[in-house]
C-alpha cells in the first residue's frame, strides 16, 4: 500500500473513533459513579437526530450541536430519575432507553427529515486544519485535518482525567461508585453526584450522536448508531475504566472499523464480519482477564437509598 492509503486510513480511524470516544467518556462518568449504562445506544441516536433537526430548522451547525447537547442532557436526566430516584433496575431501564431511542428517532426522523434519497442534508461540522501542524507531512494530514468535535473529544480525555483524579469532585464521584454508603456517611450527596454524572454522560452521548450525524454524514439515517453505543461500553471496559484507556480502546476500535471499510473496498479476502466482531470479542477477553482484579467500580448497577431517606 502506498502512503496516501495509510494517511487516509489513519484519518478515517480517528474520524470513526470520535463518536466512540465521546460516548465512552460519557459512559465513564456514569460508570465511575456506580451506574451501568447499557442505554448509550439509544442516547446516541437521540443526539444524532436532535443535531440534524436543530441544524436544519435553525440553519446552523451550532444550533444542531446545542440541540444535541440539550437532548442528551434531558435523556440523561430522565435516566437518572429512573435509576437513581426510583431505584429501578439499570439493565432493564438501559434496554428501555435503547428501544425508546430507536423508536422515537425512527418515527420523528421520517416525519421531520424525510427518508431515503429525500432525507434532509444539514450543514456539517466544519473541518478545521490546525495551522502549522497540519502542514507536517503525512501525520498532519491524518491528525490535524479533523473537525472541531474531533479535537474537542481528544482534549476531553486529559480534562476528564484531571477531573477524576485531581479534583475533590472527582474523588467524590469515585467514592460514590466504590462505596456509596461510606461516601454518604462522609456527607457526600450520593444521589446528587449520580444525577450530575448522568446528565454529563447524557450530554456527551448527545455530542457523540452529533459527531455521527453532523460530523460524518451530514444527515440522519435510521439506526445510524449501529451498535456504537455498545462498542463505547466495550471501550470503557477494555480501557479499564480510565479516560486514557478508553481513548486507546476507542482508537483501536475506530481503527478496526476503518480497516474493515478498506478491506471491503479493496476486496481483501478477510471477511469484513470478523473485523466487525473484533471489538466485542476483545471486550469479552478483557473482561474475563480483568475480572477479580477490582477494576470495575464496586457499586456498579446497585441502586442506593440515601441514609436520610431510610425511614421505612
Amino acid at each position: 500500500m502506498n502512503e496516501e492509503v495509510v494517511v487516509s486510513f489513519l484519518a478515517a480511524a480517528i474520524r470513526l473513533s470520535v463518536p466512540l470516544l465521546l460516548a465512552g467518556i460519557g459512559i465513564l462518568f456514569m460508570s465511575r459513579s456506580g451506574i451501568l449504562n447499557i442505554g448509550m445506544e439509544g442516547m446516541v441516536l437521540m443526539g444524532a437526530l436532535a443535531g440534524v433537526v436543530g441544524a436544519h430548522y435553525y440553519g446552523s451547525m451550532e444550533a444542531g450541536l446545542l440541540a444535541s447537547v440539550l437532548a442528551g442532557a434531558f435523556i440523561g436526566l430522565v435516566f437518572a430519575f429512573l435509576v437513581v430516584t426510583t431505584g429501578a433496575d439499570q439493565v432493564v431501564i438501559g434496554t428501555a432507553i435503547n428501544l425508546l431511542g430507536l423508536g422515537l428517532t425512527t418515527v420523528f426522523g421520517r416525519s421531520l427529515l424525510g427518508m431515503g434519497q429525500e432525507a434532509v442534508q444539514a450543514e456539517g461540522i466544519p473541518v478545521i486544519p490546525i495551522p502549522i501542524l497540519a502542514d507536517i507531512p503525512y501525520v498532519g494530514e491524518a491528525l490535524f485535518h479533523q473537525n472541531l468535535l474531533a479535537y474537542a473529544s481528544f482534549l476531553l480525555v486529559p480534562a476528564a482525567a484531571l477531573l477524576f483524579y485531581k479534583t475533590n469532585w472527582g474523588l467524590q464521584v469515585r467514592a460514590v461508585g466504590e462505596h456509596p454508603l461510606a461516601a454518604d456517611t462522609l456527607g457526600i450527596r450520593v444521589h446528587k453526584t449520580r444525577y450530575a454524572c448522568c446528565v454529563i454522560g447524557g450530554m456527551l452521548a448527545g455530542i457523540a450522536g452529533c459527531s455521527l450525524s453532523l460530523g460524518i454524514l451530514n444527515q440522519f439515517t435510521e439506526n445510524m448508531a449501529a451498535g456504537r453505543g455498545f462498542i463505547a461500553l466495550s471501550a470503557v471496559i477494555f480501557g479499564k475504566w480510565t479516560p486514557g484507556g478508553t481513548m486507546a480502546a476507542s482508537l483501536l476500535f475506530g481503527g478496526a472499523d476503518a480497516l474493515q471499510l478498506r478491506f471491503q473496498s479493496f476486496g481483501i479476502q478477510i471477511p469484513y464480519q470478523f473485523m466487525l466482531m473484533f471489538p466485542y470479542l476483545l471486550t469479552m477477553i478483557a473482561l474475563a482477564w480483568f475480572s477479580g482484579k477490582g477494576k470495575q467500580p464496586a457499586a456498579t448497577a446497585v441502586p442506593y437509598k440515601s441514609l436520610s431517606n431510610r425511614s421505612e
Binding site: 431501564i93 428501555a96 428501544l99 425508546l100 430507536l102 423508536g103 422515537l104 425512527t106 418515527v107
Partner: peptide, 12 residues
Amino acid sequence: SLVYVIQATIII
C-alpha cells in the same frame, strides 16, 4: 418503530 416507543414506556 412506534412499537418500540410503546414497549419502552411499558418497560419503564
